Computed example of a mutant assay.
Amino acid sequence: MKETFVKGQNTANISFYQYTCIHLCAYIVSLPPVCFSDLESSLLNSVISYRMMESFLATDVWCFLARYGTTELCAHHVTVIASLIKSCPGKTSQLSRLIVLLRRLLFLLDTDHQASFIKMFPPEQEENLSFWQHISLSSLATSLGSQVKKSLFKTAFLHIKECLDSIQTLGELQKLNLSLSALLMACHSSGRLLDSEHLSDVTVIIVQLLPLFLTKQVTEQPLLQETFCLFLDLFSYVTRAVEPAKLIQIVSLIPSVCQVDAPSHIKLSVLDFLSSLASVLIPQEAQVVILPIVAGLFSMLLSDTMWLVNQHALEIFTQFAEETNYEDIVPQSMNSEEIKNCVIYFLNKIT
């Protein structure tokens, strides 16, 4: 579609979505103040709608509203949405969409309002871990993000230790997963390089988590599967720091959990972990055990019948092949003509 934004200027090619969004925003600007509460209600209902494009459009319009309105209005909306997120039980598509909206609105807050927001939901309090596990710290000013990261590390670490010392019920396992998610959010904000103190803390947690997965319960218990996925993600931050024997033990555990009939979220987590191994120098004494396992996992996942897993496997494998120092893994992973052709087609962008 062609649209002229300013009279006298050349027309610009825009999509139908852009056209709709632009004109909807223009219409909102013309609304009288008496309609504002109805507008807020309509936007909220649309953001949490099951109709994806409606949700996307409402989120974009809301962000326009935050830019067009006052800082106080944006701060108020952030507080309301954050409270909704904190009160949402479990994982739903509505929760995911509220999280996306909150992350975008946080970027629009000035530093003072961000500081007030942190005071309203202090990460030092255990009850707020369920909230901060969803918040990208890159949304915050650098100094505030560092402050929250430090608090999250401390609070989540202590809570994880408490859970591991007394874990007996599924409810306690759920609390453990929540704290692991919060800790991972703090790790993500550090990039792939943790400082020595945090590296040591995470390594301790990894060692303490390991006994949870040495039984067949992982394949039978969804909550424990979630714990395993979080464990792998966390382990990718400390792979270089663990002893060879522990590295062998953990990598050797993966095939028993990630089997052909394993849930897709486990397979995707394993692929992400394999991706992190691409740049890791594996100790000589561990290579004889670990490299065949990595090749076997890639071979299985490249043959997966679910398109999402298969596509992700192709992306991770080609990236891994470019970065790894252990080139023997590549041909060992492509142990059938079907896998070879699939990889070649992917590289040549043939569908």
Rank of each mutant, 00 (worst) to 15 (best):
E3H: 12
S15D: 06
S15R: 08
C21R: 13
I28V: 14
N45S: 10
I48L: 01
I48S: 11
R51E: 15
M53S: 08
F56H: 14
W62E: 14
C63A: 11
R67G: 08
Y68H: 05
L73T: 11
L73D: 12
C74D: 10
K91S: 11
T92N: 05
R97M: 02
R104Y: 07
F107C: 10
D110L: 03
D112Q: 06
H113M: 03
H113D: 13
S116Y: 04
F121I: 02
E124M: 06
E124N: 09
Q133P: 07
H134F: 12
H134V: 02
S139C: 13
T142S: 13
K149L: 04
L152R: 04
L158W: 10
K161E: 15
C163S: 02
S179V: 03
L184V: 05
M185W: 02
A186N: 01
A186Q: 02
S189G: 00
S196Y: 07
L199C: 13
D201E: 15
T203C: 13
I205H: 08
L210H: 15
T215F: 07
Q217E: 12
E220V: 02
Q221T: 15
Q221V: 10
L223S: 08
Q225W: 09
S236T: 05
S252N: 13
P255D: 00
P255A: 04
Q259M: 14
V260R: 15
A262T: 00
L274W: 08
S279D: 13
Q287P: 01
V289L: 13
I290D: 04
F298S: 01
F298N: 00
L302R: 06
Q311K: 15
Q319A: 07
A321G: 01
E322S: 12
N341L: 14
C342I: 00
K349H: 11
